[in-house]
Simulated scan of single mutants.
Amino acid sequence: MATRRIFYIQKSAVFNRFWVWKKLPIWALVVLAFCSAASAQKSLVPAIEVFGGYSHLSLSTNQLGLENWTQMNGFDVAVTLPHIYKGLGITADASGNYAVAIEQYNYFIGPQYKWEFNHFQFVAHWLYGRAQTRVRQAGSTFTEPSDRQRSVALGGEIDVPLGNRISIRAVQADYVAASAFGANRNGLRLSTGLVVSFGKH
């Protein structure tokens, strides 16, 4: 009886070992297919950069009966596809800046060019869009009294990578040219914040 039990145990061990080796190619194919699918899915996701941070706008406002230059604080956010073709990309940018007597919103989209030097990332861009300027006074609303006109931003930024996915935007500087209430509104916008990268990098 003991001999039959030992023979059965040895037979089961041999069978299990043979079954594992027999099924090994199938498991290998399953793992390989899963890895290939994950890699293909990752390669289909384009690189996307999301920026958010603080913005300061120095805006010419003397023709509105205010100071020559009004200093405005606010926010700046952007979504970028940075690697469309050999450093060329496209970015969409939105910012809002506020002072006691006036506020301005800018909405831009346009091309950019990105390159790296000594672990720093440099970007130059030309953005086109709309600027909404609103005079803040008692009884005013978001749309009145306000003026929405075409706007252009010329500038760039310097990013300092902290890892594969996160960077610090040390500075973004833009010359913003717009018009409001029949007069040109030129300004200098400075922004800083964090950049988070998603997708293929």
Rank of each mutant, 00 (worst) to 15 (best):
A92I: 14
L88S: 08
Q104T: 06
I102M: 04
K114S: 13
Y105V: 08
Q121R: 11
G96P: 04
Y107D: 05
L127K: 02
H83S: 11
A92D: 00
E116W: 01
T80V: 01
N106L: 00
Y128S: 14
H83W: 10
S95D: 10
H83Q: 11
P111D: 02
A101C: 01
Y113A: 04
F117V: 08
R130M: 11
Y128G: 14
G87C: 01
L81V: 10
Y107N: 08
A99S: 15
Y128Q: 14
Y107V: 09
G89V: 02
W126E: 08
F120T: 08
H83C: 03
D93C: 10
Y85I: 10
G110N: 07
A92L: 10
Y113I: 08
V79K: 05
V100N: 12
L81S: 07
A131P: 03
L88G: 09
G110Q: 07
Q112M: 13
A92Q: 10
A124T: 06
E103H: 04
F122L: 02
F117D: 04
Y98V: 06
Q121L: 01
H83T: 05
A92V: 15
T80D: 03
P111R: 03
P82T: 00
A124F: 07
W115S: 06
G89C: 02
N118I: 07
I90M: 09
F122D: 00
E116R: 08
H119G: 05
N118W: 07
D93H: 15
P82V: 03
E103K: 01
Y128D: 14
Y98L: 05
Q121Y: 06
V100F: 11
I109A: 13
L88M: 12
W126A: 14
D93W: 13
V100C: 07
P82H: 00
K86N: 15
V123M: 14
G110F: 08
Y98M: 02
V123K: 13
Y128H: 14
A101G: 06
H83M: 03
I109S: 09
F122V: 00
H125E: 15
V123L: 11
H119W: 11
Y107L: 13
N106G: 01
L88E: 04
F122Q: 00
P111H: 02
F120E: 11
N106Q: 03
L81F: 13
G96W: 07
T80Q: 04
A99F: 03
I90A: 09
N97Y: 01
Q121N: 15
V79L: 07
N118L: 11
G87F: 00
Y128K: 08
V123S: 13
N118K: 13
G87D: 04
T80P: 00
N118Q: 09
P82F: 03
F117E: 05
H125F: 12
W126H: 03
L127Y: 00
G87E: 00
W126T: 07
K86Y: 13
I109M: 10
T91F: 01
F117K: 11
L81D: 06
A124L: 08
N106S: 05
L81N: 02
G87A: 02
G96I: 10
K86E: 15
Y105D: 08
A101M: 06
F117G: 02
A101Y: 09
G89P: 00
W115G: 07
Q121S: 10
T80E: 06
Y105G: 01
P111W: 00
G96Q: 15
Q121E: 13
K114R: 14
Q104Y: 02
A124E: 07
